[in-house]
Simulated scan of single mutants.
Amino acid sequence: MSAALAFRPRTLAAWWPAGLLAALVACAILAPWLAPMDPDRQNLMARLKAPGFEARGALYLLGSDELGRDVLSRVIHGARVSIVVAVSSVLLSGVVGVAVGMLAAYLRGWVETVLMRLVDIFLSIPAILLAIITVAVLGPGFINVILVLALTRWPRYARVAYGQTLALADRPFVRLSRAMGASTPRVLALHILPNIIGPLLVVATLEFGLMVLFEAGLSFLGLGVQPPMASWGAMLSTGRNYIATAWWIATFPGLALFLLVLSANLIGDRLGDLIGKGR
């Protein structure tokens, strides 16, 4: 009995971030059905109303913004934007970065020199500055934000994949596979990638939270997702002008942003601990 009681708090501490992240992802997926109102519907007669305000049978549970739009509905739909952008940019940057890192470590020679110097160049530029410059050139928009974030973050995956592949490239099972005539793509995909996927998953989990912050930062500056599409960063940007009179406009999207990034980072830390113990 005492062992069970001792185990339960540790279990909850380990899994509540995953539950929180799952709940936020579910809100993003089910946004059209969970949101009580159209997030873009304006009602100037109900502008800047405090949480709990009710008008014409509509309850503004988290209040309304400067155009009378329901804050709760916009927060729920904003979760969809943040999560889709983060997942897409993580997948795209991960594929590019892992491919570059593995090829550099496996082929060596001039390929390694060229690819890793390219990685060094990208890593020498502040990521947020590179993102701002690139999106200013390409123009703001949903797809452009994904491309920009992927462009700025692939070198981190390349570095991890490079180091992990370098440690495995001369292992007996890899040399045996090459001796039997396996092609480079086959060796990398079937023999090396499965053995380095753990550290890459940790990086991807931590990068997910960072991508959410980057997307919010770009939207805050007006370079991300454009109105009328709901975005947490854009809501924070608008809410700062009303922080003294309508605190709820910025507080609730900021809280949602905090919880999403926190849960992703805690899951990444937990994965890192599990992989470290496995070794």
Rank of each mutant, 00 (worst) to 15 (best):
I76R: 11
L274Q: 08
L107W: 05
G254L: 10
L188N: 02
D120K: 03
P39M: 11
P194R: 03
A14Y: 09
I121M: 10
T134S: 14
A55V: 12
D269E: 15
G272T: 01
R240W: 03
P199N: 04
S237P: 05
T152F: 04
V84I: 15
R171A: 14
S124T: 02
A35S: 12
W15V: 00
I197M: 03
A26Y: 08
A13L: 15
L260V: 13
L48R: 13
S64H: 09
A158D: 07
A161E: 02
L130C: 11
W15T: 00
L21E: 13
R175G: 08
L115N: 10
V212K: 03
L236G: 06
A23Y: 00
P140S: 15
A136Y: 05
L255P: 09
L188F: 02
A35R: 08
G272S: 12
G276W: 01
L103S: 13
V203W: 00
W15S: 00
G52Y: 11
R178V: 06
R108C: 04
I267T: 01
V75G: 10
G94A: 03
L61D: 01
G163I: 02
A13K: 14
A3W: 10
L67V: 06
A14T: 08
A234E: 15
R69A: 13
A204D: 01
L59P: 01
A6F: 12
Y60C: 05
W247L: 11
M116Y: 07
A104Y: 06
F252T: 05
L5W: 07
R156H: 08
W33E: 10
L200Y: 10
G217I: 02
A189Y: 02
P126Q: 11
A35Q: 08
I121Y: 07
L115S: 07
L223F: 14
S2I: 13
P185C: 07
N43V: 07
L236K: 07
G278Q: 14
Q42E: 12
R47S: 14
V96H: 04
P17W: 07
L115Q: 10
L210Y: 06
R178K: 13
L61T: 06
P155K: 09
K49Y: 06
Y162P: 04
V261C: 05
S73W: 10
L118W: 09
L151I: 15
L130T: 09
Y242D: 07
V148P: 04
G222P: 13
R108G: 10
V87P: 01
S177K: 11
G101E: 02
E215P: 11
A167T: 01
V225M: 02
L166T: 08
R175A: 09
F258G: 09
V187R: 09
Y157C: 00
A104F: 04
L20W: 02
P172D: 13
V114P: 12
L5C: 08
G68S: 12
D38S: 11
R108N: 03
L260G: 04
L221I: 13
V137Q: 10
P36Y: 14
A104P: 05
V98P: 01
L257D: 03
L166K: 07
V85C: 12
A14M: 05
L147H: 11
N265T: 00
N265D: 00
E54S: 15
L24I: 15
L115D: 07
L260E: 04
P9D: 05
A136G: 10
A216D: 07
G239L: 05
I83A: 04
R240P: 05
Y157A: 00
L5G: 14
A204G: 03
G268Y: 06
R108K: 10
R270C: 01
I125P: 06
D65A: 14
